[in-house]
Design a protein around this nucleic acid. Sequence first.
RNA 1: GCCACCGUAGCUCAGUGGUAGAGCGCACCCUUGGUAAGGGUGAGGUCACGGGUUCAACUCCCGUCGGCGGCUCCA
Length: 697
Amino acid sequence: MPTITLPDGSTRSFDGATTPYEIAQSISEGLAACAIGARINGELTDVTTPITDDAELKIVTARKGEKKSDPDALMLIRHSCAHVMAEAIQRIHPNAKLVYGPALDTGFYYDILFDDGSPLSSDEFEAIESEMKAIIKEDRPFVKYELPCDEGLQKLTKEGSKFKIDNAERAIQNGSSTLSWYVTGNPNEHWEDLCKGPHVPSTGAIGAFKLQTIASSYWHGDSDSDRLTRVYGIAFVHKKQLKSHLKLLEEAKKRDHRIIGKKLGLFHIDEMVGQGLLLWTPNGAIVRQELQNFIAEQLRRQQYSQVFTPHIGKLDLYRTSGHYPFYQDSQYPPLIDPDQLHALAKDGCSCGDLANMMKDGEIEGYLLKPMNCPHHIRIFANGQHSYRDLPIRLAEFGTVYRWEQSGEISGMTRVRGFTQDDAHIFCTEDQVEGEIIGCLELVNIIFDTLGMHDFTVRIGLRDADSDKYVGDADNWDKAESACRTAAGTLGVPWIEEQGEAAFYGPKIDFIVNDVIGRPWQLGTIQVDYNLPERFNLSYIGKDGNQHRPVMIHRAPFGSMERFIGVLIEHFAGAFPTWLAPEQVRVLAISEKSNDYADTVHQTLLNKDIRASVDKSDERIQAKIRNAAEMKIPWIIVVGPRDAEGNNVSVRMRGILEDLGAVSLDTFADAISAEIKSRGNEPALKTCFPDVKLPEVT
RNA sequence: GCCACCGUAGCUCAGUGGUAGAGCGCACCCUUGGUAAGGGUGAGGUCACGGGUUCAACUCCCGUCGGCGGCUCCA
């Protein structure tokens, strides 16, 4: 007599074993018709999964008209669509070996091995899609059958797919008592796949789908293992959702910083200079400089001391810090001391010998710095420090170089040379918490000013069972609790991850997503017990004895490159006035107004506004369009009418029409105030108090 | 680093085994126009680079470099 509790709290009793489908039917035929799955006691299941005991039940539905579908419904549909796709692919490529095909938040994929020398190409998408459509049209049921593990393994062994055998073995290892298959139709007649499920009741429940891209992956993510072909797709309850999703993706692509960066002339990556080595072009340099000025201002307020250090340092420095040779694979090779190089050449040293010497660290020379900390440490170590001097906060926009894997390099977000908004704080154990809070305050101010509220905070804690960590347990506990307390001051949700700490201390990371939904770690705050030890740092305490300071590494925005890359996408290139490379463009109505346009231009320049003037012989319509395309926040149009009254006619980015005329001085002062206040005193409000900003930019 | 795909004018892209095209941009000319593309003319390309096949390669094959999408990695 199972009693079923529904999400609204109501209960229903049944005489014997039942299923979510039967329960849905008992509620209404309409509900049953759109039921595609269920959650039984929180677990996602088929609609046909038997219920024998009391349970909490949620019926997962997919209705054609709904605007937004239940995430559970999408998971079911996508997972089922992966099956349909696999069946379609195997119809076309009978020898394709299926590996693994899960649903994702963003769609689904299936990993497939084509070992008969006929790799899949996206040219075949159309053919696959039409097979899939046929399967969906047939509306064949997803039928589950189970076998005992040994019997199931026997069956798989007979079929001979090591991938499926592996999947089954993993399932058994994870505690499955049986193995299950899903047949798309009638057992022994139609296509089947080893699968834990759950699935939609029948293929017809897959409302709309599209194959997206073809990529590659490794079996088990192991680069020495089989290379698989991964086909990505997306599926929805109905066509309309698919259409709007595809449109969203298209819009997102337009925000891609690589596209906007080119169009707005923000940066350039040159084949001749090198992969992953970013050239900041004049417009991008302005954005970076403004942002650095802003950060530097905050650092001064927080009593940081700015330092400058060179881009290279002796290998010994990095031997002491441990960066060399531990991280050799991700560093540019050392610059060998010229004298030693000549001597080695004279001795007939081969390239192989040299490579081995480098590997063993037996050479003299310099390293392009992979981190700024060793230099900053040597600044601290130069001289004696009293506890009264602490904390000492050394800040630098320090450029570092790392040999990132060639396949990883992309746009501004993954590069080989980048400038961190770096600082190292040397403090006492008791000061750690306050210093972390200070770092987070800075993060808050800057994210807030930029309107970036969509980020995740992750605290990396140590794994209590591991002995890979340096520093004593008490200090770790203190530092970890300091991270928690500090994170609590941010006012955004944060997650804790055990075992994610660096070996030398706990950390706080900030993660944002780019337009394509890829997560990027921006900044990080890390407590470090290791380097002070390695460099034997000390300060004189109240007791007159030497004590070891604690170090905090913090680069709240990570690198200027990645941060601005993300920022370009955040603003879709439409930077707020204070950051915009070109803040105002003055358009002369005709040649007759060129002189006045020059006057206006000069007035703006005198107020430190980044303005330009367009005196080309285009019509005003074209000039406006050109300026708008460049996402310039303010366009002012000047003609004889304006010249007469010493006015300017104003257009603001984001508002489609002409706002009307305002006096030149009023405008210039208002823009100037907006820039100086970094957007806190909007010029629109000053010049046109009645105009309201549209909600969406 | 690995796999798939791609590389044609400054940009976006079309194209073919017989030495190349469009739109935008650029230059010049006409136009002097009050709020999101006025008109005309012209200049620009060793078709990424290096080999090979061929009577002939931008096109086919191999390699290198670079891009893109993944996988793996990111102190």
